[in-house]
Design a binder for these strands. Structure first.
Lengths: 133, 133, 133, 133
DNA sequence: GTGGTCTAGACCACC
DNA sequence: GTGGTCTAGACCACC
């Protein structure tokens, strides 16, 4: 199963679901148009409250990751359909800034940091190739 | 002043302080051994609750960013002295993973992502050169 | 075809049908006395559940937009025949109120709002001239 | 009190709260920076569940109408600070379209519709002058 | 004190 | 069947 949540982590459960779905979609473990388990199914299988799952699904819909079709179910949205392009790039820059700050504290050189990032990204690219159907 | 906090942001105030100090140290706006304002001074000048500042300082000390010397004050720790090297690298990888996931959702190619990251890092390097004393 | 529905929109499918028919009648794409497809025909051609179409038709009949004549079919009602004149005006005022509230939040001046409304209405008048048979 | 909700209406309670707050802000019954009742206070005074009020407040914050300051309370945001300008204008146009459609069904002339709209808007402007502090 | 999260479980609209 | 809303009430982080 592509979804694991852990109530002991400080990250809220619904947020863990959101992040896990985003990750699965990014890795193509979940593909465009694929149906997600229903709120009740997922809640039952993860022993979570349906409200918690519903909150996660609503957040994912707002983010444009999934599409909810009333009475029918929930599906992975088209990747290209994402809105807020500018805001998303800004969020990425903010994350990269954090990486950069951490690197300074570790006294990594510019080149060390860059190769560390390259290495990590390459690893995720490989992971995507492996997991994607 | 290197410290700006905004109570309207969703990030907790204490965390904003922590992040701002880390950033200032990374940019060398605050230098090794430099004295930080006391909890009370900072709280008064920023109209913050002293508890909030104290919590931030505790977190910073645990992270090895500052050192509290009883009776003398609070100082920026040596950069090289950071512990938990492995854990910090893992945290960086986690951040990079998030960047990677977001890039997949924006359908950025491997090369687009890499040049975006390089560009952003280069910007922060320049910023450091400019702000550092 | 004057009818387009999209299951991904949050507006219920039956409501989308209702609104589309009202719009087509207002634009004279559908004219007084014109025959509408039967519930089954429409459901089949749009791959909708017949219950959904039937619910829409019931709503349209209650609103006086269409007339169902047993054994003969469903027809666009006479425009002048609408009942509940007062209730309809009240509904329009409610919609205008919502427009007004939104305008305040956007800090539009009285004149800006008025010309925005005039402009938008004029556009629909033109559209009607173009689409009407 | 500027807030009235009615569980018998089909509009969800949380949405009624959202709309009422937007209206109060538009009329300047609630002014920039003014404090709203806390989630618990409002829930108690309206005999609603705190979750319902919390959901409304979260929606209002997302819409940029209010600002939540952690641990301190909830305040009316600056009117000028609204985002999504383009999307909001589109939503207004959609509402005006509905007004126009209804007018066609009532066989109102272009001029009748325009003066009806002007009259209604003028009424709300007066209401704002009266209620605003 | 404040709002945010979560469980448990009812009821409803839509399809 | 599906997701959306709502109540009731616990617990938590933040200030």
């Amino acid at each position: 199963m592509w979804l694991r949540v852990d109530p002991r982590r400080s990250k809220p459960l619904y947020q863990q679901i959101v992040d896990a779905v985003k990750e699965a979609v990014a890795k193509k473990v979940l593909e465009e148009g694929e149906r997600l388990p229903s709120v009740r199914e997922l809640a039952a299988s993860m022993t979570l409250n349906p409200n918690t799952v519903a909150k996660a699904y609503q957040e994912l819909e707002r983010a444009g990751v999934i599409e909810v079709i009333r009475g029918r179910g929930t599906f992975v949205a088209a990747l290209g359909a994402k809105k807020d392009h500018a805001r998303r790039l800004a969020a990425m820059q903010e994350l990269i800034k954090q990486v950069w700050i951490e690197a300074q504290h570790l006294q990594m050189s510019h080149d060390d940091l860059l190769s560390f990032v390259q290495h990590t990204i390459a690893e995720w690219d490989r992971e995507k190739g492996r997991d994607g159907k």
